[in-house]
């Protein structure tokens, strides 16, 4: 319903302004369709998605591991705390440029730049989650000789779940934004590269068509992956 109202307003405005900078929804849909048929749009979207999956997985895995360690170890935490704050606040553009300058305009530099931007975020979130772990349950696990693996899987991980999901959602949003800049600055394919191209051609319809594809993918990820995960992990709640 809200989507229909939005489309209506868009259509009204586009017709009223009759400007090159605001095409009608119909025009955007046409460009979108042509892009899909030619294979251009799926290709560049796929490339970006692949980079997203790789950099997101690396950042989450490393971030969770480091976050748990820092949350459980006060000395290490005090040692790295300042560095974490520094990395958390370095502008994304700086790390991206430095990665490209130091490692060249290659794929691994692009991925590394995204990971470095995302990693401190995950670490901080998971560290807070680890600090909030229920000591009573950890004592229980120790008393009943759960061992490291069982304690992690059955006692620690379920308590971290909300924090992991938080890091996942905010992380996906952040990575999308950074990845496009990374592609714009140093890659010759992907959504960021294409958007840069359309900007130079002043092709607003294409920019909007790519945005639509982008929003659709995010909705699909939420609906098909994150929501079911939430549902499964939280089935014990009343």
């Amino acid at each position: 319903m809200s989507l229909l109202v939005f489309l209506g307003i868009w259509q009204g405005l586009a017709v009223y302004l009759n400007s090159n900078t605001l095409p009608t929804p119909e025009a955007v849909a046409k460009v979108f369709w042509l892009g899909c048929v030619s294979g251009q749009l799926p290709f560049h979207l796929g490339v970006t998605l692949l980079r997203l999956v790789v950099s997101f997985s690396v950042a989450m895995l490393l971030g969770c591991a480091i976050g748990i360690v820092l949350g459980r170890n006060k000395k290490l935490d005090a040692f790295f705390d300042n560095w974490l704050v520094i990395f958390l606040n370095i502008p994304a553009l700086v790390t991206i440029i430095l990665c490209y300058v130091w490692f060249g305009l290659v794929e691994s530099a692009a991925i590394l730049a995204v990971v470095i931007n995302k990693l401190p975020n995950v670490i901080v979130t998971i560290r807070e989650g680890t600090r909030a772990l229920d000591q009573d349950l950890l004592d229980m696990a120790r008393c009943y000789h759960f061992g490291k693996r069982k304690t992690l899987v059955h006692v620690i991980w379920p308590q971290l779940h909300p924090f992991v999901m938080g890091a996942t959602r905010s992380g996906l949003a952040l990575i999308w934004k950074i990845i496009l800049v990374v592609e714009l600055l140093g890659r010759s394919n992907g959504m960021g590269y294409q958007l840069h191209l359309f900007f130079q051609l002043f092709d607003v319809a294409s920019i909007l068509a790519y945005t639509v594809a982008f929003v659709a993918v995010i909705q699909l990820i939420e609906l098909l992956i994150l929501k079911p995960l939430d549902k499964k992990a939280l089935r014990w709640r009343r």
Partner: peptide, 26 residues
């Protein structure tokens, strides 16, 4: 081998009654 019954039951809320018992058993 020590069985400890705490003041609060300290059950894992995300595991069923039976799973809670099985986890302690190893």
């Amino acid at each position: 081998k020590i069985g400890y019954i705490f003041q609060n039951p300290r059950l894992l809320p995300w595991r069923t009654v039976r799973e809670n018992i099985e986890l302690a058993l190893g």
